[in-house]
């Protein structure tokens, strides 16, 4: 219950671009496009990082730029009156960019140890937990990982994830179920004390 509330509050804080700016961006106005990039750059970066951090920061930066360029080039095609939110549409493009990149070159996978960003202000225990979660998520199969990341870190519901991945909602559910179980098992092996209260 607390988690759902937290999700809603995070979603509210991550509001979509306003309609006027979006319309101007669709008309090619540079300032609006700049604003669009400023608004969604962190989102795109977060998704790419969680999906491809094992490939190195420079590769992540390239993918982020590639995804943002695609967004800017195709923003005029986005339908504001449609069922998809702008953020979902941008995450869809970003997901495609990441998956296409992985299909082109799978040899570079897992060359870099997946890590969590170490905030100097965070406690050591939290840093350790973050690294453990990163390793657990990175170990997931790609199809499960992308569904997990989109659900847990970008607040997409099952239907939106299904559209992004172009699969059935049932497939999304099964993938998420297996992903959560796998992450939980991995974390349980690494940090048994984390689930002591839940058991």
């Amino acid at each position: 219950m607390e988690r759902a509330t937290a999700l809603r509050s995070r979603s509210a804080a991550r509001a979509e671009l306003d309609d006027l700016t979006l319309r101007r961006a669709q008309q090619g106005e540079r300032a609006a496009l700049d604003a669009l990039v400023a608004r969604y750059h962190p989102v795109v970066h977060a998704l790419v990082w969680r999906m491809a951090c094992a490939r190195g920061e420079s590769h992540v930066a390239d993918l982020v730029q590639d995804a943002l360029i695609r967004v800017l080039q195709n923003v005029a095609r986005f339908d504001p009156a449609g069922r998809a939110r702008l953020s979902t549409w941008i995450l869809t493009i970003t997901t495609r960019v990441v998956l296409n990149d992985r299909r082109r070159d799978t040899s570079r996978d897992s060359k870099v140890e997946p890590t969590s960003y170490i905030d100097p202000q965070t406690a050591a225990a939290e840093r350790e937990l973050g690294a453990a979660i990163a390793r657990a998520v990175i170990e997931l199969p790609e199809a499960q990982r992308i569904a997990f990341v989109l659900r847990e870190y970008h607040d997409l519901d099952y239907g939106e994830i299904a559209k992004v991945l172009d699969v059935d909602v049932g497939t999304v559910k099964s993938r998420l179920s297996r992903a959560r179980a796998a992450v939980r098992d991995t974390l349980l092996r690494a940090h048994p004390d984390l689930f002591r209260g839940a058991r």
Binding site: V37, R50, G130, Y153, R184, L194
Partner: peptide, 17 residues
């Protein structure tokens, strides 16, 4: 995974572009 704060896996701030 309710009892785990998955956002402990932090993402570094994006590089300035």
């Amino acid at each position: 995974l309710d009892d785990i704060d998955l956002h402990a896996w932090r993402v570094p701030p994006p590089a300035a572009i």
